[in-house]
Amino acid sequence: MVLEAFLIVAAALFCIGIYGLITSRNAVRVLMSIELMLNAVNLNLIAFSNYLDSVEIKGQVFSVFVITIAAAEAAVGLAIILSIYRSRDTVDMEQFNLLRW
């Protein structure tokens, strides 16, 4: 039970999240990848708070804040996807060019 094992798992989860964020075509899958990355950050925070600051567990306080922000982000992101789907009739990321050109 060492700190490094948790950090490596979090790094793997974060890299998988980045890969999904960039390569996904479906907009809902992009949101899922963002959730994966936020979970990796949470694992980092809690691992550090357990091994380096186990009396004042301030890392867990911040992980609760991150969980809250993630819930708000998921709600707003899915509402945006729903509203784009209503007007464009697709969830393909390659066709969301409203702000690109």
Binding site: M1, N42, N50, I57, Q60, S63, V64
Partner: peptide
């Protein structure tokens, strides 16, 4: 994983 790291509330 959080339970392994003694974070029961989280």
């Amino acid at each position: 994983m959080y339970l392994l790291l003694n974070a029961d509330f989280v």
